[in-house]
Simulated assay, not measured.
Amino acid sequence: MADIQPLQLPGRLKQPRLYFDPQKMERLKESIAKHGVLEPILVRPGAKGTYEIISGERRWRSCCALEMELIPAIVRDMPDATALEAALIAHLLNEEITAIEQTESILSLLSLHLDIPVEDVKAGLYRVKNSRSRGAENSRIFSEDELKLIVEILGEFGMKLASFVSNRLPMLNLAPEILDAVREGKLSPTNAVLLNRQKSDLHGVLVEKAAGLTKQDLMELVKDLEKEQAANSEPVELSISEQIFARFKTVRKKKSLLESTEVRKRLTKIDQLLQEIEQLSV
């Protein structure tokens, strides 16, 4: 058992499984103690006589906790990309990883196949989606062969490039508290993105109350908390510059109003006054 370790990948690439639910681990440990390991783990040869786990890390961890000396295993010699893909597929089939872990693993898989850093993969995917939304070509971002490979890999996991960029990548930019909740399976990806848009001081209570809620229920919860917070807070008087800025933002939203000749004349006068004010501060 001492010569077995989790899957090791180059650089900052991440293996699929990062979070292990304590309750599920306890149940698995009890099952192994009673019935033994019923399915061998899958490993590949590692460095200095070690073996790296491709599939079955939960079983291995449980056996370690039970201080078992042996565990049944199948050894397969796999390169990094193949090992990561096999690990990811195994976890998906068993529904053992969160959407965050899946997204990070798919990025790592793309990084290995394209031979570029994960951050460059993310940036490239955003640029491809933006180019397509404008009807532009993306040949300067990825080659046709690279783009075909990306589409094929995403397709293996039932995803399309546009939805992966729109729905999955934003999850990696969640606030730490929300990101941890998704990793632990407490929040769905959709609810996490919605929650992340709220004020940071509401994140803690929302994470605590959002478990199991639908998107609609969560939106209602957000509204209730905002009303409660507004009722308990003292009104804040805006400075004259803040008032002007707030009014300007309101006017900008009324596009039909901005098309009026009279409105444009008045805005021109405002601009002239602002220029005079700028000169006063010189």
Rank of each mutant, 00 (worst) to 15 (best):
122 K>Y: 09
170 P>A: 07
201 D>W: 12
256 S>K: 11
69 E>C: 02
44 R>T: 11
111 S>A: 12
174 L>V: 06
32 I>F: 10
124 G>M: 06
197 R>H: 15
104 E>G: 13
46 G>R: 01
126 Y>G: 05
106 I>D: 03
1 M>V: 14
228 E>I: 01
205 V>W: 01
11 G>W: 00
24 K>Q: 14
26 E>Q: 15
110 L>N: 04
137 E>C: 12
86 A>V: 12
205 V>Q: 01
230 A>F: 00
98 T>F: 05
201 D>G: 05
96 E>H: 12
130 N>R: 15
226 E>T: 06
139 S>Y: 13
128 V>E: 00
86 A>I: 07
213 L>K: 10
93 L>Y: 13
29 K>D: 05
261 T>P: 10
107 L>I: 14
49 G>D: 03
93 L>E: 15
137 E>Y: 11
211 A>Y: 04
146 E>T: 07
42 L>F: 06
244 I>M: 00
57 E>D: 12
12 R>V: 14
201 D>A: 08
119 E>F: 13
6 P>Q: 02
245 F>D: 12
143 S>W: 05
42 L>W: 03
186 K>M: 11
119 E>D: 15
81 A>Q: 01
155 G>T: 05
64 C>T: 13
127 R>S: 15
22 P>Y: 07
245 F>I: 09
213 L>E: 01
3 D>N: 15
31 S>I: 12
14 K>F: 02
177 E>L: 13
19 Y>C: 03
258 L>N: 06
87 A>C: 08
192 A>M: 08
278 E>D: 05
84 L>C: 01
158 G>R: 00
51 Y>K: 08
239 S>T: 12
196 N>Q: 03
11 G>K: 04
118 V>E: 07
159 M>V: 03
215 K>E: 10
200 S>G: 08
61 R>Y: 08
57 E>F: 08
188 S>F: 05
174 L>D: 03
24 K>P: 02
242 E>Q: 11
257 L>R: 08
41 I>D: 03
38 L>A: 14
17 R>W: 01
51 Y>A: 04
58 R>D: 12
169 L>D: 01
47 A>R: 11
176 P>E: 07
121 V>G: 02
183 R>P: 02
59 R>A: 13
39 E>K: 14
17 R>M: 09
82 T>C: 03
244 I>V: 11
11 G>R: 02
268 T>V: 02
211 A>R: 14
118 V>G: 01
201 D>C: 05
70 L>W: 13
232 N>M: 03
265 K>S: 07
152 E>S: 15
216 Q>M: 02
204 G>I: 03
154 L>T: 08
263 V>P: 03
187 L>Q: 09
208 E>S: 06
199 K>H: 14
213 L>Q: 00
187 L>T: 12
105 S>R: 06
